[in-house]
Write a protein that binds this DNA or RNA. Sequence first.
DNA 1: GTCCTAGTTTTGAATGATTCAAAACAATCG
DNA 2: CGATTGTTTTGAATCATTCAAAACTAGGAC
Lengths: 145, 145
Amino acid sequence: MTTTEMPDLRESLRAAGLRATEQRVAVLQALSSQPHADAAGVLAAVTPTLPDTSVQAVYGILGALTDAGLVRRIEPAGSPARYELRIGDNHHHIVCSNCGAIGDVDCAVGHAPCLTPSSTSGFTITTAEVTYWGLCPDCAAGPVA
Amino acid sequence: MTTTEMPDLRESLRAAGLRATEQRVAVLQALSSQPHADAAGVLAAVTPTLPDTSVQAVYGILGALTDAGLVRRIEPAGSPARYELRIGDNHHHIVCSNCGAIGDVDCAVGHAPCLTPSSTSGFTITTAEVTYWGLCPDCAAGPVA
DNA sequence: GTCCTAGTTTTGAATGATTCAAAACAATCG
DNA sequence: CGATTGTTTTGAATCATTCAAAACTAGGAC
């Protein structure tokens, strides 16, 4: 149940060198139920239980969690930043160009070398990020409706 | 010379169904000299010749040009939108995580199949966008200085 | 268990990028 | 050359995000 998750979440926070506050636990829980929530979505999910939580706190928490490596921030064009708990695997995302919905795309193992660019313009590359654009099932079904 | 380019630019605009205004020509010229300029950069480049150009006009023009397919808009995380004239080839970009500089990366032919995702979460995919992150030559040379 | 202190959150305000709306204007067609 | 419709100006508003100072609290120390 939800109650049993909390100790684990508190542990993760402590392990990452962060204080285990109610808000932080709540933010992590929010992200586990809403895999690609933005700051507003997280706030909305947290408010029922912790009504005094401010927007700034959410940004602060998400920033701290991101810095600590507990969450990953994704910023698709035209959308506010989204946050997710799936970290440590370099999976990618597919964004619905109609409604902004986001889906996970597992990184196809063995394909990694293909992401090595042919010309680097002299840049030193550290990461390759892939974003797919298309239509989510709902929008593909009824684009206008 | 710069003067000889103008007729061509005007032609392109007309061909795209857009009126050939001074500002639009100037914006196109700005983008040809500054390959990955943002709205502010374009405005700065246009102002010397057309001092009355407003920020909103630049946004309007860039939007119109983008819709018409004459320019491509790229929006790296943490950076204002950039615009470029290189269209029609699906090349990608490398962004300096230190200073935000952007370089072009030619799409490695033959690698395209690797961009086919393994699982699409039910989405219909139309585009795959790759962004590389790293350090530009300058920042790699002296990261702190 | 209580106190202290550094790390957190609240409160309040500001910033930057971008967009909206209405009025003034100008490129193109006839 | 005049009308029409698309474009730009002017002026203001919106959204996501960040800054700063004061109030607060988790967790270690005693």
